[in-house]
Write a protein that binds this DNA or RNA. Structure first.
Lengths: 165, 165
DNA sequence: GCTATCCCGACCGCACTGGTAGGATTAGCC
DNA sequence: GGCTAATCCTACCAGTGCGGTCGGGATAGC
């Protein structure tokens, strides 16, 4: 597994904000309750989303968070990048370059050649990035709403949707 | 970053075995020296590759490892899967299912519905898997050989290939 | 002023990663 | 038969980051 719960919780946060926050801000407490997630931890995660300009906050009573943009304009590559800090599939591949732009690859810096593994990880990173970019928050909100027809509603016990392949 | 050095070192292992081991087995010592990697650690990594049937070993003096198949028949999704244990992008997504095949998702097991995040991580996993599957060991060996024209040879000091975009 | 909420830094246990140590086993070779 | 080169195996260890908690400060509605 390579993404942490930051990505999981953060995406859920956005989905819930999108679903419940049409007109007024959504408090973390509500989300923590409905999603059954630790509030204090969510606070730290939503800070990442705010820093990335994906949500806006209102302080004080009846405060909370709203999406900074329309859900159709929020792509998941932005979101995951904000939450995880990087989409690089390998340590030696995170974007810390030398001043001249050369990529530092610790195990080949003596020869200075482009390593074959770099080719591979580049392809992976591009693939992940493209995949995430092709999913918008709006799509996930819509998917979620199909699963739970109305906000707060819950499936009747025993009536479980068969896993959609 | 989400792959560990196991994947990095393991892929390099295979490349070196493929490059140097046309006729005779390649010892880990040689690889550890040429790639400047810790021998004892490589031992544990190559064990993963052997268990997955990607390499074969010969014990004793002049022993070492050879590829179990032609490099063209070794796809990187197999390799990374063997090394990392899983390609699942999320913990709640690793393939440990209930007996009936239901996927366990810890945060939604009370409602039992497919979560929207699952949709997202599924796409990512398929994307990564496809990307890796489209790269064969042969391609990486060839790439590496272009960088270092002959085995053991090294670029003249100062003559550095410009990073191939 | 009370309370709900965002905000922020410190702290903490745990698991895993990356790596080491030491030895057992196997096999070529003189 | 010994020496040596190599695979194999288990245990160990330090560091780091993850997931989570705690306490408190700032802010705003009522």
């Amino acid at each position: 597994m390579f993404f942490t719960t930051k990505a999981e919780y953060g995406v859920r946060l956005l989905i819930e904000i999108g679903r419940q926050g049409q007109d007024q801000p959504v408090s973390l407490k509500v989300i923590a309750d409905t999603e059954n997630l630790p509030l204090a931890y969510l606070e730290r995660i939503v800070a990442l989303l705010k820093r990335a300009g994906l949500v806006q906050s209102t302080r004080g009573a009846h405060g909370g968070y709203v999406l900074a943009r329309k859900p159709t304009d929020i792509r998941m590559d932005e979101v995951v990048l904000a939450l995880e800090g990087s989409l690089a599939p390998m340590e030696c591949f995170v974007d810390d370059r030398a001043d001249d732009g050369r990529v530092l690859c610790s195990h080949h810096d003596d020869s200075g050649r482009g390593c074959a593994t770099k080719l591979l990880w580049t392809r992976v990173q591009v693939g992940v990035s493209n995949t995430l970019a092709q999913t918008s928050l709006a799509e996930l909100i819509e998917f979620q709403s199909r699963q739970l027809p109305r906000a707060g509603e819950r499936a009747a016990p025993g009536e479980r949707t068969p896993a959609p392949a």
